[in-house]
Design a protein around this nucleic acid. Structure first.
Length: 852
RNA sequence: GCGAAAGUGGCGGAAUUGGUAGACGCGCUGGACUUAGGAUCCAGUGGUUAACCCCGUGGGGGUUCGAGUCCCCCCUUUCGCACCA
């Protein structure tokens, strides 16, 4: 019988679903393993690039199960968001209907891939039973002072009279109507994540099972810097201006001060400036710059002298106060002391406006060198303060310590730690999201919705035009309410929450997804969490993971959970790219191999004259390079897609999809299938010495795959299994007939292969063993004795040149030479243990043996 | 500019602690079986060569009996941050 994936795959998918093999009773005590793929946004069709994430998660899940671990693998839907609303505007479908049908399609796709989830715990963030707890969580943060209202700029389209998300702004214009987008300040809701900046930063140290890259990105995002706030007296104002610096030890070199043009003291400073209008024009220019251009051209530093002076508290000199476009209003105090000798930006600014430069740090050893003077000496080991009063001669670390103490002792400032991280703006002027449970009363002000009134339901009967703001705001029944406190007239908050709020705690909800009495069951959550293995793309390296870590700490402070880190171990899979062809005239998605012709090395689509220009990139409809899984599954089966996806490259790396390479995996699975048929037909049962090599390979493969799968080294695991199938094929091809020997190599292969190709292995297993592989069998273990080589072949090299080979019996305590190399070689064990390296003496000199 | 990762055949990619570089797969070449094959099987496939030798892991130095792997300098690519004081 030929291998026909179309016959066997639905059969097994159905059986797994009927028997609910992935369902886990979380109340059952004992060992646990919680693995989780980041839940998807249901945008519609999934392509093979999306598949990588779920396939590798499923492979790992099946491996865990077979090795006897109680693994929980739930799935849900990050179902609120902008695309649903866009679909409503463009195609007249209600966001809910669009979302629900996408969920159904994607669920079907998961099934077709053979992916096992515990669907009894399925959740969707757009479900009122889910978002009521989202609202409850908001109220908890509000009560704790962690949710507050403040002004923040939004992208405003004057044409559509609505707020735009950043991705809807293209080159400063509205994506839809091309009006120029302006910044407008709105009252919005924030979560005070900055209160947790220090803990979020410190917690990164413990996340040793996260990719180093992600930890670093988070660290940079939080941007912790330790330094000091220092007050500089400004005689003209009759008070002081505070600056933040990480290098208070360089204060003797602070020869001027620079303020952000937005700084609140600026109007007073320039009140009597002779060219006041010019300065105001400059301020206006920088303010407008801050939107787009400030990012585009970081080249030019520009500034204006305010005409005012500050007193350097350590030199007692008057230093000029400038305005500068490079000083950011949001960071620190919006004011800096400039030390041009030791800061690149200050240096450039000083050069441009001819301001004094004074060296106050220099290398301990070197003579003062004019060229080196302008360098920032930051090497804590070798640099020393000079011309700096009491700290002269101290190394940087000691100097910072001493001067900071002096600053505090003199009462002119204090040690300070600041962060780049800003508070989390959670307000969205959008319909398709969790309504913020707040009511504004004319008498009582801002009133939280009592938790008994939750959920605040999102009304479904709203029109979608894409204009005139948030549709929710025009829904009278939603907006007009009675104040829960005084019963008087009030109106509802119409902003909805950022969907990152939904995803910041969903991992805990899975444990008691049907509980309508509480956000989650703390006792069970404390048993199952943190998530033991979290899997998802790097695009969530910062926001989703940082917000989840933040909310987890809030839940910890509320004593709802007993841990501060939600994800113990994190894996980021790489993206799948493919050659695509930019050809807007053609409306094609994936061009199957059979329909492509090559003329002069340029691919053409059959039957057209259009020239197709290859370009490798992310799969997208606009690039016409999307590989839909159904065509692939139709032709080769889901197992082929699964194995290919895992074989293509190390899973953390970006990988280029190749239609041609898929065939190799299909051949491999066909070969495995045929081997099963051949082995099923064998009748001799006696052990066969000729099988030794195959048996050895089998045990080496078991050992190898077991180690690699734990490290997510799926591509090399598959290579090993291919080698084993080749060895079995070789044994049979050379006349091997021992049924028991062949089975003892082949059955472990099926087990090892099951996480990767579950359908075919189940089918063969059923035919050969008459049992269910996933449910009834266990992960194989290797026999060390059977892995040993009979004879080691030793290659003799002298000075890197091949000099011959000898064979050695490794079973002997002292390796015995079985056949001699060229010349008289003598084996001398050189390195102990399992090492394969030995040295030998060739007459006259010591050489090395390399053992294979 | 700063930070991080990576450069290995025609291609995707392998190489415990430094130990025969190129596993495995694609593609390609030759052969077998076939009406035929893009099915299957066998053999080959880094460069050079009839073969041996020799040369080969981005470039240049170094350490070592021995370097893809360790050290120094340079080049390139990708990703992240982008004036964070």
């Amino acid at each position: 019988m030929p291998y026909e994936p179309k016959q066997i795959e639905p059969k097994w998918q159905q059986r797994w679903a009927e028997e609910k093999v992935a369902e886990v009773d979380v109340t059952k005590p004992g060992e646990k393993f919680y693995m989780l793929n980041m839940f998807p946004y249901p945008s519609g069709d999934l392509h093979v690039g999306h598949g990588r994430n779920y396939i590798l998660g499923d492979a790992y899940y099946r491996y865990l199960r077979m090795s006897g671990r109680a693994a929980l693998n739930p799935m849900g839907w990050d179902a609120f968001g902008l695309p649903a609303e866009n679909a409503a505007i463009k195609r007249g479908i209600h966001p809910r209907d669009w979302t629900v049908s996408n969920i159904a399609r994607e669920k079907k796709q998961f099934e077709a891939w053979g992916i096992l989830y515990d669907w009894s715990k399925e959740l969707a963030s757009c479900d009122p039973e889910y978002y009521r707890w989202n609202q409850w969580l908001f109220l908890q943060l509000f009560e704790r002072g962690l949710a507050y209202r403040g002004k923040a700029p939004v992208n405003w389209c004057p044409g559509c009279r609505t707020v735009l998300a950043n991705e809807q702004v293209v080159d400063g214009r509205c994506e839809r109507c091309s009006s120029e987008v302006i910044q407008r300040d709105l009252e919005q809701w924030f979560f005070k994540i900055t209160d947790y900046a220090d803990r979020l930063d410190a917690g990164l140290d413990a996340l040793v099972n996260w990719p180093e890259k992600v930890r670093l990105m988070q660290r940079n995002w939080i941007g912790r810097s330790v330094g000091a706030d220092v007050r500089f007296d400004v005689p003209k104002l009759g008070r002081s201006i505070t600056v933040f610096t990480t290098r208070p030890d360089t204060i003797y070199g602070a020869t001027f001060m620079v303020l952000a043009p937005e700084h609140s003291d600026v109007p007073a400073l320039i009140a009597d400036h002779p060219q006041r209008d010019g300065v105001l024009a400059f301020i206006e220019k920088v303010r407008n710059q801050s939107n787009l251009e400030r990012q585009a051209d970081t080249a030019g530093k520009e500034g204006r002298f305010t005409g005012a002076f500050a007193i350097n508290p350590f030199t007692n000199e008057e230093i000029p106060i400038w305005l500068g476009n490079f000083v950011l209003p949001q960071y620190g105090t919006g004011a800096i002391m400039s030390v041009p000798a030791h800061d690149q930006r200050d240096f450039e600014f000083a050069r441009q406006y001819d301001l004094p430069i004074r060296v106050v740090v220099r290398p301990r050893e070197t003579q003062l060198d004019a060229a080196a003077m302008t360098e920032a000496f930051t090497d804590k080991e070798s640099s020393v303060s000079v011309a700096s009063g009491a700290i002269t001669g101290l190394g940087i670390t000691e100097a910072i310590e001493k001067i900071s103490d002096d600053i505090e002792a003199r009462g002119i400032g204090r040690k300070m730690t600041r962060y780049r991280l800003r508070d989390w703006l959670i307000s969205r002027q959008r319909y398709w999201g969790t309504p913020i449970p707040i009511i504004y009363c004319e008498k009582c002000g801002t009133v939280p919705v009592p938790s008994v009134d939750l959920p605040v339901r999102l009304p479904l009967d709203v029109p979608f035009t894409g204009r005139e703001g948030n549709p929710l705001a025009k829904h009278e029944g939603f907006v007009n309410v009675d104040c829960p406190r005084c019963g008087g007239k009030a109106r509802r908050e119409t902003d909805t929450m950022d969907t990152f709020v939904d995803s910041s705690w969903y991992y805990a909800r899975f444990i008691s997804a049907r509980d309508s009495t509480q956000i989650f069951d703390s006792e069970l959550v404390n048993r199952w969490l943190p998530v033991d293995q979290y899997i998802g793309g790097v695009e969530h390296a910062i926001l989703h993971l940082l917000y989840s870590r933040f909310i987890c700490r809030v839940l910890y402070d509320m004593k709802l959970v007993g841990f501060e880190e939600p994800f113990a171990r994190l894996f980021n899979q790489g993206m799948i790219t493919k050659e695509g062809y930019r050809d807007p005239a053609e409306n094609m998605s994936w061009v199957p191999l059979t329909e492509v012709e090559t003329r002069d090395g340029v691919p053409y689509r059959k039957g057209t004259e259009a020239r197709l220009i290859p370009e490798v990139g992310k799969m997208s409809k606009s690039r016409y390079n999307v590989v839909p899984p159904d065509e692939l599954i139709e032709r080769f089966g889901a197992d082929t897609e699964r194995v290919y996806t895992l074989f293509i490259a190390p899973p953390e790396k970006e990988a280029a999809w190749s239609d041609e390479d898929v065939i190799g995996i299909y051949r491999f699975l066909n070969r495995v299938w045929r081997l099963g048929e051949q082995i099923g037909a064998l009748t001799e049962d006696a052990a066969d010495p000729a099988a030794a090599k195959m048996i050895r390979k089998a045990h080496q493969t078991i050992a190898g795959v077991s180690v690699r799968i734990e490290k997510f080294e799926f591509n090399t695991s598959i290579s090993l299994m291919m080698e084993l199938s080749n060895a079995i094929g070789e044994y049979l091809g050379q006349g091997g007939r021992s049924r028991s020997d062949a089975r003892s190599a082949y059955l472990p292969l099926l087990k090892l292969l099951h996480p990767f190709a579950p359908h075919i292995t189940e089918e063969i297993w059923e035919q050969l063993v008459g049992d269910d592989l996933l449910v009834r069998s266990s992960w194989p273990s290797a026999d060390r004795e059977l892995m040993k080589e009979d004879v080691l072949t030793i290659v003799v090299q002298v000075n890197g040149k091949l000099r011959g080979q000898i064979e050695v019996d490794p079973a002997a305590d002292e390796p015995t030479i079985l056949s001699e190399a060229k010349g008289q070689a003598k084996v001398v064990p050189h390195l102990e243990g399992k090492t394969i390296v030995k040295s030998i003496y060739v007459p006259g000199k010591l050489v090395n043996l390399v053992v294979r």
